[in-house]
Design a protein around this nucleic acid. Structure first.
Lengths: 162, 162
DNA sequence: GCTACTCCGACCCCCTTGGTAGGATTTACT
DNA sequence: AGTAAATCCTACCAAGGGGGTCGGAGTAGC
């Protein structure tokens, strides 16, 4: 598996916030109930989003969380990055702040890392897909698919993003 | 991390086979030595490639492995698929043989899986990147970056400090 | 001062990953 | 025939991370 459940839960949480009024705090408990997720675990997940500046919070009674920006301006690569820590196809892939791709493999027998080309392309494919999807799209998508009892024949409306 | 070391080792192994004459068996030991990988573990890795029909093998003395097809005809999605089992961004993603994307989440409160759109796009991005890369490209790439033999005198075969 | 929240750190179980051990089988060479 | 070189196969194991839980402290509204 590629992404952990933190990504799944975190994205669901962001979608849920995206359906609410902006600036109006929503409590974690409400989200946990709506999505059927464990509250204590959601706390950990949302903390990552807060530290990344994607959501803001208010403590105390009637507190809660809300999106720090309109959902149209939130690309999903930011969200997934915040939740997963990094988006790297292989352990040896580390982005330093200069955007250079490093590879920690010792260059065996003087040869460069033979797999670098492949993982670089994969990483590009993933990030491009995420960048081209906004939170607003997901909110809209989840709204469209409310209610209906799900007939047969599916998966036709998920157009590629890149 | 997205892919496990099985993928890394397996791809390196395939590249190594791609540099050899076709139909000429190369022993695992030779590859393990060349790449600095544990032989016993490589056995598990190559078994997956063999079961997927990507490599063929001959037992006994002077046996070994070789590519079952020319490297130009091997797309990397096959390789990674064989090594990782499946290429799915999220646990709930299962491909049955009909190419339909299933999602095992219970549709909470009648709503469809809100994250499906996102993960489907990501999966598409990954698979496209892999499909568009052939083993031959990687072989050629690793050959281009093969550099000068390590200067003698330096203890180059001892593991350098990370 | 109660209550409803966020926030934080410690803890815990379990499964996968990465790797080892040991052998059985097959084949080539002498 | 005997032996060495290889694949093949099944167990086994240690460590780490994923996926949580628990208990409590801080903070804001009533």
């Amino acid at each position: 598996m590629i992404f952990s459940s933190k990504a799944e839960y975190g994205v669901r949480l962001m979608i849920e916030l995206g359906r609410q009024e902006p600036e109006h705090p929503t409590s974690l408990k409400a989200i946990a109930d709506a999505e059927g997720l464990p509250l204590a675990y959601l706390e950990q997940v949302v903390a990552r989003l807060r530290r990344a500046g994607l959501v803001m919070s208010a403590r105390g009674a009637h507190g809660g969380y809300w999106l720090s920006r309109p959902s149209e301006e939130i690309a999903m690569d930011e969200v997934v990055q915040a939740l997963e820590g990094s988006i790297a196809p292989m352990e040896c892939f580390v982005h330093d702040h200069t955007e250079r791709v490093l590879c920690s493999h010792q260059p065996d027998a003087g040869r460069g890392c033979a797999t670098k080309l492949l993982w670089t392309r994969v990483q590009g494919g993933i990030i491009r897909s995420l960048q081209n999807t906004t939170l607003a799209e997901l909110v809209e998508f989840s709204g469209r698919h409310e209610v209906e009892p799900v007939p047969a024949g599916v998966a036709a409306d998920v157009a590629p993003a890149a």
